[in-house]
Design a protein around this nucleic acid. Structure first.
Length: 183
DNA sequence: CTTACGATTCCC
DNA sequence: GGAATCGTAAGG
């Protein structure tokens, strides 16, 4: 049973393609892992809600590089994980919003301060806290086979629905949030 | 240097 | 509904 690490070609596509394709895959960091069940696409061009919309800065730098690298950003006192997609110079990305805990649940509980298991990784900053993903992971290559990586899911495409993106003030109607349907 | 502002979370 | 709380980005 050899799990397939997602390769760079997987991430080289449009975020609207990558975001739904990421549903059902396994995000791994160290001894923890979780199945991705919610993502959002942020477009490279003319997406006023995207961090890269106002151009290249120190913070958004990795979005302009090659696909498959981690874009970690800070909001308030939390960190969130994105994956840079599309070819260099095209700053599309996908935000990982929620996952199902699979491996390392005890350590996740500890890091999350003993909240109920249902709230371990059900938010973009919560999953980062549970999996110890922070600014140290900024720019990490997810295709390099390091401790932070994403491997393909078991079966084919799972049922999914789209909704507007959460927590943004611009382009709030765009249906770029992808959510796995419960079994 | 100063100001404005969050791709959130948690509590009331 | 509202506060916490701090780095980033932009402007003087």
């Amino acid at each position: 049973m050899t799990s397939r690490n997602l390769d760079r070609m997987f991430f080289e596509r449009d975020p609207r393609k990558v975001a739904p394709a990421l549903l059902g895959t396994l995000l791994i960091h160290g001894r923890t892992a979780g199945r991705i069940i919610e993502t959002e696409a942020y477009l490279a061009d003319c997406d006023p809600a995207a961090h890269a919309y106002r151009g290249r800065t120190k913070r958004t730098e990795v979005l302009f590089g090659p696909p498959g690298h981690a874009y970690v950003y800070r909001t308030r006192q939390h960190c969130c994980l994105n994956v840079a997609v599309q070819p260099p110079g095209t700053p599309g990305c996908v935000l990982i919003r929620s996952l199902l805990p699979v491996v390392g649940v005890p350590v996740m509980r500890r890091r999350r301060g003993g909240v109920p298991d249902t709230h371990l990784t059900d938010g973009p900053a919560k999953l980062c806290q549970a999996m110890a993903i922070g600014m140290d992971q900024y720019g990490v290559d997810l295709c390099a086979g390091g401790s932070l990586r994403i491997v393909a899911g078991d079966g084919g495409s799972a049922p999914m629905r789209t909704t507007p993106r959460i927590g943004i003030t611009r382009a709030k109607e765009w249906p770029l949030r992808y959510v796995s349907m419960p079994d």
